[in-house]
Every structure is written in structure tokens, then in C-alpha cells.
Nucleic acid binder design. Structure first.
Length: 271
DNA sequence: AGAGGTACCTGGCAGC
DNA sequence: TGCTGCCAGGTACCTC
């Protein structure tokens, strides 16, 4: 479900409701997520104030007391604010209880998500320590990508989806950014010129920024912290559009498997 | 070191 | 209707 724009949309949705509040409890109905929720998590959180809701890649970082609650939404996870208790559904695995009697509810049918604890600010946690730059920051630029890609035979789509290279670019936005940049998704990363990387960096930033402003992409069931869907799906030009005509050149959009992921491209526009 | 495959899990859908 | 197999927005971890 969530790529960077969906995680950022979630962050913005929950931040005003959660920030500044004290944690009054934690209800764990299903401990077995990607990794088991630490048995002592509730004790770390209880009674402490939520000082900030940050994001690093697709990880949400809630600064609570002196430590950090690290939340990942996986493929199918979502968070929403409940004003009052509501009967939990079968995939409502965790509730973070807040002192104004509202709660942050975590729903995740596939259970690829995670709730972890870091004693410090979170960025030093093993899962976050090796992450590449944020795509919307200045350090993510053409010179960086071009230099890093030299000699690499990996498909460009897999390359930009690697979290060591850049965080937050998932399967939807990788296809969309490559279409806008005119680059074939299977092209070897090491065989793309500096000018074309300039274009690609620009389209990655553009696609992610547009998607955030639209509240993300809702394909099946993504909703933000208040239950609203994202509208970027109306802007998708190739993703899930195989068999349809390219809006730019009218050729038929194709799909191909790259790194076990469905990838969509226009054979006329992308080389 | 880099590249590719596997694993984790549930639900929805196409095809028979 | 019911079964089977495949697909899904992520990514750590394993092997070659």
C-alpha cells in the first residue's frame, strides 16, 4: 500500500492529533508482525509524551520520552485516529492509547508492517542506519545517482527502488518517474548518461511531490489518518495501464517483470 | 560486491 | 459454488 507519499500523508494526518499527548496505554492484539512487537514496548511508552512525528523513508518515527517508536506500514498497513473506542476488526493489531481518550489504531491485513522501539532518536537503529538519502532533499541529485550507478548492471527501476540508493521510491512511483523521464525500466543503471539522470532525479522529485499534494495514491484501500483516500491514482500514466494507449504517443503500454515486480512502460516514449 | 531469488502474510480475483 | 493459482503499494536475508 504505502510508498513515501502515502507514509507522508499518514504522518501529516496523525501528527496534529498525536503530538504533545501523553501515552496512556498500548493494546497489542497481534504481536506477530514482520518482527514481533517487543514485549516491553508498552512500558517504554506508558506515561511519556509524544514530542514529534517524523518520517525517514517509509518509516514513521514517533519521538516518545527519550526514545523512538518506529512504525512501518509494510504493504498493507494503515494508521488512523479514533476519537473513541470502536470494536476492533480482525486486522486491527495495535492501539496506542492517548490521554485525551482518543487512540491511534494500526491495521495491517498482511502483517508486513512493524512496531519497534529504539532507545535513542531512531536514526541509528539498524534498519535505518544504512538508508540512502531522502528523495526530496538536495543531497539526492544527478551527480550522486550518476556516480553511484557506474558499473552497475542492475535495471534502473530496481536501482531507484533500492533503499540503499534512495528511500521512498516504490513500485508505483518508480514506473511513473521513469515514464516521465523517458527511460526504459530495464535499462542497466550503469549505462544511463548524466543528462538523463538529471531528468530522472527531476521526475522522481516531481512525481513524489505531486503525489503528496494529492494525498497519495489509493489503489485499493489506502486512506490517510482521517480515513480519506488519495487522489494521485488519477495522475498515473503507465502504472496498471498495460494494454491502454499512451497519452503521449498513443502506443500500447506494456508490462514486464523486473526484479519480481510488475513494471509498466511505454515502448514508444521510453528507451 | 553485486545480483537474484525467497520468505514473511492475507485477501481478492480470474479461470476452471 | 468452490477450488487453485496468481497477484498485490515492502524489504530483510540468503545464496551464488
Amino acid at each position: 500500500m504505502p510508498e513515501l507519499p502515502e507514509v507522508e500523508t499518514t504522518r501529516r494526518g496523525i501528527e496534529p492529533h498525536v503530538c504533545g499527548q501523553r501515552v496512556s496505554g498500548l493494546i497489542v492484539r497481534q504481536r506477530r508482525l514482520r518482527w514481533p512487537i517487543p514485549a516491553r514496548l508498552g512500558r517504554h511508552l506508558q506515561g511519556h509524551r509524544v514530542r514529534a512525528v517524523r518520517r525517514r523513508g517509509k518509516y514513521l518515527l514517533l519521538s516518545i520520552g527519550q526514545g523512538t517508536l518506529i512504525i512501518h506500514l509494510g504493504m498493507s498497513g494503515s494508521l488512523r485516529i479514533l476519537r473513541h473506542d470502536q470494536p476492533p476488526g480482525p486486522h486491527d493489531h495495535v492501539d496506542l492509547l492517548l490521554n485525551d481518550s482518543s487512540r491511534l489504531r494500526f491495521t495491517d491485513p498482511r502483517r508486513f508492517g512493524a512496531w519497534l522501539w529504539s532507545a535513542g532518536p531512531g536514526e541509528q537503529h539498524p534498519l535505518l542506519a544504512t538508508l540512502g538519502p531522502e528523495p526530496l532533499e538536495a543531497e539526492f541529485n544527478a551527480a550522486y545517482l550518476h556516480a553511484l550507478s557506474r558499473g552497475r548492471r542492475l535495471a534502473i527501476k530496481s536501482f531507484i527502488m533500492s533503499s540503499q540508493v534512495v528511500v521512498g521510491v516504490g513500485n508505483i512511483y518508480a514506473s511513473e518517474a521513469l515514464f516521465r523521464a523517458g527511460i526504459h525500466p530495464a535499462r542497466a543503471a550503469g549505462r544511463i548518461s548524466a543528462p538523463r539522470y538529471r531528468r530522472l532525479v527531476a521526475t522522481i522529485k516531481e512525481v513524489l511531490t505531486e503525489a503528496i499534494s494529492q494525498g497519495g495514491t489509493t489503489l485499493r484501500d489506502f486512506v490517510d489518518g482521517e480515513g480519506k483516500p488519495g487522489y494521485f491514482r488519477h495522475e498515473l500514466r503507465v502504472y496498471k495501464r498495460s494494454g491502454m494507449a499512451c497519452q503521449q504517443c498513443a502506443r500500447t503500454i506494456r508490462d514486464v517483470r523486473i526484479g519480481q515486480r510488475s513494471s509498466y512502460y511505454c515502448p514508444g516514449c521510453q528507451r
